[in-house]
Amino acid sequence: MFKLIESDAPQRRRICEIFVDGEPCQAMIGEPLAAALLKANCVPMRYTPVSGAPRAPLCMMGVCFECLVEVDGTPNVQACATPVREGMHVRLIHGARSIGQLGGAAQ
């Protein structure tokens, strides 16, 4: 949904690799994870636990909570407030999260 602008000093950009649902993807170290995901066109970024409606970041400043993703095993992290680190494993969330190994175990 977003693209990186041209730069006359591209070598200054510290590019790294992260994994989104297992797929490798390029990102810049230190940029907000949500930004990297938008550049990688991960849109919709999540589906709500209430009705399964598709969503993507709205505010990029930590107030709307539309950018929740799973980062290195921790679910519902605000991607707009999480800086990219080399080798991060990200999973996009579909609906309500599961609890440990117990996801949907009851009933």
Partner: peptide, 22 residues
């Protein structure tokens, strides 16, 4: 809907990720 953002958020994309809507 995905694809709707605040304008300030688009500015944050420029400031932090050197990115604009494609």
């Amino acid at each position: 809907l995905p694809g709707v953002m605040n304008a300030g958020a688009a500015q944050i994309m420029m400031k932090t990720a050197a990115a604009v809507p494609s």
